[in-house]
């Protein structure tokens, strides 16, 4: 564990707390893409199938937290505050993302096993999971401040992971090409969003 990775994970936690706080305080999930949240839940469930494999207490607790909160957010959006969700704003076709990521995972993976292919699928899917949310923002034209904070925390989390990989490459000879390429694309998507947002 290094500074970049720890800070990145904490930013990731913070992004989820910001989202939960926004929904609970305003009792509304307006401006939030259900499709993006659904994709994140799929990402966590398919990636953490290795939950029984022990790495550290930190690792296990974080995995449980991500799976639980992502499903809880789906519940809030689809059940508790269902009336505040407007599907007509959330029109990105996620079938294509899911299909393309599954296909890529079947072709480009470290080993062709059930758990490994789904792990790879989750890496590819996380890279593009924010697209429905960005698409929604570009349609509605503006984001609530809180939604911007949510996206900022997520973007910081991704940017810090890049620094973490550079750090790990030099300090422990760590390399993970699949994660690096997907992570670079994911960070680029956020950078593009911030660039557009900053210029506005």
């Amino acid at each position: 564990m290094n500074f970049f990775r720890l800070t990145a994970d904490l930013m990731h936690l913070m992004s989820i707390f910001v989202l939960l706080l926004k929904i609970q305080k305003t009792r509304s999930c307006s401006g939030i893409s259900f499709k993006t949240q659904l994709l994140y839940a799929v990402v966590f469930v398919t990636r953490y199938l290795d939950l029984p494999k022990w790495i550290s207490l930190y690792n296990t607790l974080m995995k449980i937290f991500f799976i639980a909160t992502s499903i809880y957010i789906l519940y809030l959006m689809k059940v508790k505050f269902r009336a505040t969700y407007d599907p007509s704003q959330d029109t990105f076709r996620i079938e294509f993302l899911l299909g393309a990521c599954l296909l890529l995972a079947l072709v480009f993976n470290y080993s062709f096993s059930f758990i490994e292919v789904l792990w790879t699928f989750s890496i590819y899917l996380e890279a593009v999971a924010i697209l429905p949310q960005l698409f929604m923002l570009s349609r509605t034209g503006e984001a609530e401040t809180i939604t911007t904070h949510y996206l900022f925390a997520l973007g910081a989390y991704r940017g810090l992971y890049l620094l973490n990989w550079i750090w790990r490459f030099y300090t422990e000879n760590y390399a993970d090409l699949i994660v690096w390429i997907a992570g670079a694309i994911q960070t680029a998507l956020y950078s593009d969003f911030f660039y557009i947002y900053y210029k506005k």
């Binding site: 990775r5 994970d9 990731h12 790495i55 000879n173 390399a175 993970d176 994660v179």
Partner: peptide, 10 residues
């Protein structure tokens, strides 16, 4: 050697 297979990140 690629030790990325350990999947120790989140």
């Amino acid at each position: 050697h690629n030790n990325g297979h350990k999947h120790d990140e989140l």
